[in-house]
Design a protein around this nucleic acid. Structure first.
Lengths: 132, 132
DNA sequence: TTCATTTTTGCAAAAATTTGCAAAAAAATA
DNA sequence: TATTTTTTTGCAAATTTTTGCAAAAATGAA
């Protein structure tokens, strides 16, 4: 299954990549490098995790996000699972939101000549509690 | 001028913050920490630049973005200057784009109870040249 | 102003992320 | 399948970013 997904993106199929993708999919929430390193089945070097994720992110399979906590987070968004977040800059709490700009992408591709593969969209602010 | 902008956001007014903000404004393009360190008038420690920028970014004065080059970039968007980018994941070339989601923010604030201060929106893909 | 309180800064150290290079694994070709 | 070529991985080292703590600067109240 993950094998198929990776192949379809034209990436080389490696056990580590499958392992990482499965780990992200099973956990259903943003994981940081250290989480992934602990949860993955195969023992793998940290630099391998970084490099594998870079490939998966560039291809659009994995969503990378920066919650401004000093570490990056990664998620696998399966069918219809694509979403973004709103994050409190004070308490770091975050929630999923369901607005996105996808609809504008086809015309943007036409205008720029780019083939769009991925995007980041995150909103920062103060949550109800921290506003007080 | 920069003094006023900083004060209006309710931040403490320091010479370093003014210096950083002026530097970003004058240069009119995304700068990385090292650029800022070199261009700034006052000698200041790298950690001070990081920390000052964090405050400026959280307040919404400065736009922080990750072009996936291994370093962060910072921009000051003055009046009507707010914009985002489309970035080629292969050659790292980037262009400004003029689409944004701001219009959705008021209703999102109402729905979530957050006071939105800043956001990230960046699009990645393959440029015309790298597609070949 | 002056003094007390809070926030910022510099420095050194820690943590996160990237990179070069040789060995291992995967893909392409025969 | 065997062989060659290309890509990925592990390891060590480099670079970028974050953090704790004491001193310096900014803020707020007399």
């Amino acid at each position: 299954m993950y094998e198929k997904i990776i192949k379809e993106k034209g990436l080389s199929l490696t056990k580590k990549r499958v392992d990482i993708l499965r780990t992200l999919d099973i956990n259903k929430k943003p994981l940081m490098i250290d989480d992934i390193k602990k949860k993955v089945k195969t023992k793998m070097d940290t630099s391998t995790i970084y490099r594998s994720l870079k490939v998966l992110v560039d291809s659009g399979l994995v969503y990378q996000t920066d919650f401004r906590e000093g570490v990056s987070y990664f998620e696998f968004h399966g069918e219809n699972g694509h979403h973004h977040h709103i994050i409190c800059t004070t308490c770091k709490k975050r929630e999923s939101i369901d607005i996105c700009m996808d609809k504008a992408f086809p015309s943007l591709e036409k205008k720029t000549g780019y083939k769009i593969t991925n995007h980041i969209f995150e909103i920062f602010g103060l949550c109800k509690t921290c506003l007080k």
